[in-house]
């Protein structure tokens, strides 16, 4: 699939001298959900803000839909919708008026039917005549999304869309994002919640200290970096591992009640059969066993640690 956003050699140095982005190269494919992960201050928001025109780049080029975001900013921004991290709204405006305002600002003629459709989708229709300051935090977040969708963008940026949002609303938002993708939109989201990326994303990019550390298909990433663990619950606790088991990547846990075996799920030869055979020979009995795959969170923590 072709790229809808193309970032080349992007640099951003703030006036204070802080290097927020360093030689960032990134391609976002049309129609995908791309999750940008990174610790606080890694440059996620700066990257998004630079694409959307809120921050001037110090060097490099960005195109959105083939339009340079600096020299052809009108064409580029026409197709972009942004939901920033901070909830900033015009407190005294009504929900419907603020969404209509956003639509106009992005150069689209008024379309009450479309605005109604978005407000209904986001469960805001009942609140359309309420002033924004009278809404709850989660409702305000939805208003921000409605504003970003008001001009029917092809690309939607969601900067930490579910920060401070309850579980129900989070599920609703995930549904909504999937629905948007089905209608052909490309979605780029940043998040702290790794489960969110795991749940939603087609591809994952990890940014740390202003540099893209990794970009990978989510499934491939999980498989490539994913380590599996086999946990055996022992009948009788062990104080130390028998020397015969030294060849295995084993560890005792829970005061010797559990035996943990790490293996690579990708390899042909996981070594599980041999391990179990050896255990049988050593007379080590177990009452239960389970396997688990390391989560994206662990992968992420390891990546960020490695790049330090």
């Amino acid at each position: 699939m072709s790229s809808i956003i193309s970032i080349q050699q992007l640099n951003k140095v703030y006036d204070s001298g802080f290097v927020a982005l360093k030689d960032v190269n990134l391609e976002i494919k049309k129609g995908e959900i791309f999750a940008l992960l990174g610790p606080n201050g890694a440059g996620k928001t700066t990257l998004i803000s630079t694409i959307c025109g809120i921050v001037n780049p110090s060097g490099g080029t960005i195109t959105a839909g083939g339009h340079n975001v600096v020299t052809q900013y009108r064409a580029a921004r026409n197709i972009i919708g942004l939901v920033p991290q901070e909830i900033s709204t015009d407190s005294f405006e009504t929900v419907e008026a603020t969404v209509a305002f956003s639509r106009g600002l992005f150069g689209k003629p008024a379309n009450p039917q479309y605005v109604e459709k978005i407000l209904r989708q986001l469960s805001l229709w009942e609140k359309r005549n309420s002033k924004i300051m009278a809404l709850s935090g989660g409702m305000k977040r939805r208003v921000m999304i409605a504003k970003a969708l008001s001009h029917e963008p092809d690309i939607l940026f969601l900067d930490e869309p579910t920060a401070g949002v309850d579980v129900d609303l989070r599920r609703d938002m995930w549904e909504m994002v999937r629905g948007l993708r089905e209608n052909g939109a490309t979605i780029i989201l940043t998040t702290h919640y790794i489960e969110e990326a795991e749940e939603m994303a087609d591809r994952i990019g990890v940014i740390n200290k202003g540099q893209i550390v990794l970009v990978e298909e989510k499934d491939a990433l999980m498989q490539k970096l994913g380590k599996r663990e086999l946990t055996l619950q022992l009948q009788t606790p062990l104080t130390e591992l028998p020397a015969e088991l030294n060849g295995f990547a084993l560890e005792l846990a829970k005061d010797g009640h559990e035996l943990v075996y790490r293996f690579d799920s990708q390899s042909e030869h996981t070594g599980i059969a041999e391990l179990l055979k050896q255990l049988g020979q050593q007379g080590i009995d177990f009452k239960d066993l389970s396997t688990s795959q390391s989560s994206l969170e662990e992968i992420f923590v390891n990546l960020v640690r490695d790049s330090k």
Binding site: A76, R77, P84, E86, L105
Partner: peptide, 14 residues
């Protein structure tokens, strides 16, 4: 001051 300027800055306007 309130931060809503983000929208004007990211809009296709000169």
């Amino acid at each position: 001051f309130s931060g809503t300027i983000y929208e004007v800055l990211s809009a296709p306007v000169s």
